[in-house]
Nucleic acid binder design. Structure first.
Lengths: 231, 231
DNA sequence: CCATGATTGGAGCGATGCTCCATAAACCAA
DNA sequence: TTGGTTTATGGAGCATCGCTCCAATCATGG
C-alpha cells in the first residue's frame, strides 16, 4: 500500500501515473456509464492501461473502491450549502442527496449496502453531519439531536432508495410505468390488497421529487410538534 | 419451468422431491446460517442432493430466488396482526419488520436491493399494504393516504437498514462497538464534524429498538399534526 | 408397452475478484 | 557514478461463481 514508508518528499514519482484518486475517478465513470456490473477489475485495467496487481496495490478490494466512489460523489453532493434558514437547509441537503442518486443510479444500492455493512462509515457520517447541523440550529433540545437527526436521515435514505431508478427513462417511459403499475394494483385481490387498490389513482399521478419533499416536510412537522416549544 | 403444460393431476410425481418451495426454504436456511455469500447454487445442490440444472428448472435465476426468500420471510413477519388501534397496529407492523431483519441479517440488504431494482415488487407491495391499512383507519383524508404511507414506509426501511447488523454480536460486543464509535467521533475534526462530536454521548447510550420506535412516533406525530383534524 | 413430455444431475463455459511474482522505475547511501 | 532498497507496475493464473446444455431418468396416457 502507498505511503507506508518514509514519505521522502511527496515527490511525484514518474508523474504518478496511477493514483488512488484516478482509480476512484474512473470507477465513478464506469458506474455512471453502465451501472454496478460494469465496474470490474478488468474494465478498470482496460481504461487505465494497467494490470490488476497495480490496482490492488492502491485499493485493497472492490468494496473499498465502491465505498470510496460513493464517498466522493456524496461529498460533492453535500458541499456546504449557502447560509439559509435551518428548515431550508435540511430540505436542500435532502434534495442534494435525492438528485445525486438520480444522477448516479448505482449510488442508491451502494448507500444502502454501506449503511448496512458499516452503519457509521464515512459516508453515513457525512450525511448525518450535514443533516444534524441544521437540526441543531432548529431549536431542538440537545438531548433530542441524535434521535431527531436519525429519523430524518433514515427517511431520506429509504425514500431515495425507492425512487432511485426513475433516472434511466424519459418522462414518457415513466408515465407508462406508473400507468402499468397503477393498473396492476387495480387487479390485485380485493381481500388481500384493499389499500393498494384504493390508492392506485394517487400513485399514478404522483411526482417522486414532490413526494420526497412532502415526506421531509412531514418529518419536520413532527419534529416541530414534539421538540420545538412555542410553535 | 414447471406447470407449463397440462397439470395432469397435481399428482405428486415421484413424491415431487424437488419443489420451488423446498428450494426457497433451503435458501432461507443457508442465508440465516451464513449470510448472503453462503447462498450459492453449489451450496444448494449440496444440501438438496441434486444438480444445478434441476434447480434452474424451478427457479429462473439467483435474484428471483433471493426475492422469493425475502418475500417468504416478510410475509411471515407481517402476518395479520390482532385488531388494535391504528397507531398501535402501525407500530406493530414496523416492529415486525424490525425484528424480522434482526433475525435474518441478510434481509436488510435484500429489501434495499429489491426496493431499488423493482420499487413496486411483491415485497414492497406487502409492506405498503400492511402500513397503509392502519393509516387509512387513522382518519387521514383519502387524498393523503399515498403520501403519508410512503413516508412511513421509507422511514421504516431506512431505519431497519442501519440497525440491521446488531444481530450477530452479543450485548457486550454492542456496548464495545458503540463505545468505540463514540470515541472515534470525539476525535473527528471539530471544523468538519462539530455535530457528530456533540452527539457522541447520546449515540453511545442509545438503544436501537427504542430509537426506531421513537422515529415511528415522530412520523406519526407529523401525520397527526398535518392530516388529522381536531387533534 | 412404448412414446411423449416432465424432471433430474452434472459437465463445462465464460466471467469474476484476487494473489503472486517477475520486473521496472525511483530513491538513497557510499 | 554505482549498487542496493523501496516503491510501483503489468499480467499470468487460481478458485469460485452463475448459468447453460444435454444425456439420462421417471411418470403418464394413448
Amino acid at each position: 500500500m502507498p505511503g507506508m514508508a518514509v514519505r521522502t518528499h511527496q515527490s511525484q514519482r514518474r508523474r504518478q501515473v496511477l493514483t488512488r484518486e484516478r482509480i476512484v475517478e474512473t470507477a465513478v465513470e464506469l458506474l455512471d456509464a453502465s451501472g454496478k456490473d460494469a465496474l470490474t477489475v478488468r474494465a478498470l485495467t482496460g481504461r487505465l492501461a494497467t494490470g490488476s496487481g497495480a490496482i490492488y496495490w492502491h485499493i485493497g478490494n472492490m468494496d473499498e473502491l465502491l465505498e470510496a466512489a460513493a464517498d466522493a460523489v456524496v461529498a460533492t453532493a453535500l458541499a456546504r450549502p449557502a447560509e439559509v434558514a435551518p428548515q431550508d437547509e435540511i430540505r436542500a441537503v435532502a434534495l442534494g442527496l435525492f438528485d445525486a442518486v438520480a444522477e448516479h443510479p448505482w449510488l442508491a444500492a451502494q448507500l444502502a449496502a454501506q449503511l448496512i455493512r458499516n452503519p457509521w462509515g464515512p459516508v453515513t457520517l457525512r450525511i448525518f453531519e450535514s443533516v444534524g447541523r441544521p437540526v441543531s440550529a432548529l431549536g431542538v433540545p440537545r438531548d433530542d439531536w441524535f434521535t431527531t437527526t436519525s429519523t430524518l436521515v433514515h427517511y431520506v435514505l429509504g425514500a431515495t432508495a425507492q425512487t432511485s431508478q426513475r433516472a434511466d427513462g424519459f418522462e414518457v417511459d415513466r408515465a407508462e410505468f406508473l400507468a402499468t403499475a397503477s393498473r396492476a394494483w387495480r387487479d390485485l385481490d380485493p381481500d388481500d390488497y384493499p389499500f393498494m387498490r384504493a390508492i392506485a389513482d394517487q400513485m399514478r399521478e404522483h411526482d417522486d421529487r414532490e413526494q420526497f419533499l412532502t415526506g421531509v416536510n412531514l418529518v419536520l412537522t413532527g419534529i416541530a410538534a414534539l421538540h420545538i416549544k412555542g410553535d
